[in-house]
């Protein structure tokens, strides 16, 4: 290349020298350890609970009076309880019940909370005040007490428990959703939509709801474990799911007095419960990180 050529005009594109915004896998699983672990563990337990009736040759209420309080062995993987029932089957039946209670309550929490919170966020100032005052009032009595009172009133049973838990659980969701909707209402992209003539419903369902998804699910990851614990506490107080149905709360309460002699009766339900709530927490963390 002669000297003259070097100084000739030339144009150039900097493309290969620029840092690119590589197309990272859009999947939320990518490198999100929390989500991976959380969903993994939860999925395993969930699947096992669905197949609970077929997991072992025994049913959850099958009594073997001659084989009471056996430690884990070949026939009974998790051992037996004081009526000779197979703990393994009961743990996963318990999972079904606890999941049913927790998910149903959480679902109602979500529904009521989102509706209530959105209405509050969109109403006039004084209406919002009144709505929030009502929430505060509901919070004045510890929720566990309300649940207890409810169940004492109506009598224990699946439906009563779900209703009772939903009755107090929606407040937290409503508060959080309201805060989120407040923020989003004023966001620039909502304003932009409005100026282009979008109707209220379009804005609400297309812009606001998708954006509260993350917060809502993260809060759910808190309400579901809370519901599971509440159910356990109710069982401890004798107000929970009634025998012979198995739920984790029932199994744990019954095994406490026998802890000294038959620790496996406490161990297995507790471990599975802890793993479940832990995995839900991990999912919540993972979602927060993704956000």
């Amino acid at each position: 290349m002669s000297l003259n050529n070097l100084f000739e005009p030339a144009s150039f594109s900097l493309k290969e020298y620029l840092v690119t915004n590589k197309e990272i896998k859009r999947s939320i699983f990518y490198k999100n350890r929390y989500l991976q672990i959380g969903l993994g563990i939860f999925f395993i337990i969930f699947v096992l609970s669905i197949f609970a009736p077929w997991l072992s040759p025994y049913s959850y209420k099958e009594i073997h009076l001659d084989q009471r309080n056996l430690p884990p062995c070949k026939e009974f993987i998790f051992g037996t309880d004081d009526l000779g029932r197979d703990i393994f089957t009961r743990v996963f039946w318990g999972a079904r019940i606890s999941f049913a209670v927790a998910f149903l309550s959480a679902f109602f929490d979500l529904l009521i909370g989102v509706v209530y919170g959105s209405i509050a966020a969109y109403s006039k100032r004084y209406v919002d005040e009144i709505l929030m005052r009502f929430c505060d009032l509901l919070n004045a009595i510890p929720s566990l007490l309300i649940v207890i009172l409810f169940v004492v009133l109506i009598g224990p049973g699946f439906l009563a428990i779900v209703t009772a838990i939903s009755f107090t659980g929606w407040v937290m969701m409503a508060r959080i959703i309201r805060a989120e909707v407040f923020k989003l209402k004023e966001a620039n992209f909502v304003l932009a939509s409005k100026t282009m003539g979008a109707s209220f419903f379009t804005i609400f369902f297309q812009h606001i709801i998708p954006n509260v998804r993350f917060v809502a699910i993260a809060t759910l990851m808190y309400s579901i474990p809370s519901a599971i614990f509440t159910e356990a506490t109710l069982s401890f107080l004798g107000l929970g799911i009634q025998a012979p149905m198995a739920s984790w709360g029932v199994m744990i309460s019954d095994s406490i007095s026998a802890l000294r002699f038959y620790p496996w009766r406490l161990l297995f339900p507790s471990v599975i419960l802890t793993l479940t709530t832990f995995s839900l927490n991990m999912i919540g963390e993972g979602l927060k990180k993704h956000e």
């Binding site: 070097l6 100084f7 000739e8 030339a10 900097l14 020298y17 840092v19």
Partner: peptide, 26 residues
């Protein structure tokens, strides 16, 4: 202003420069 990967090989102003020359790319 670009965010560039390499440090020492070319002149950074080259894509916006009205007078860029061959040597600027080398």
């Amino acid at each position: 202003v670009p965010q560039l990967k390499q440090t020492h090989t070319i002149c950074p102003f080259i894509d916006r420069c009205p007078k860029s020359m061959l040597i600027c790319t080398k």
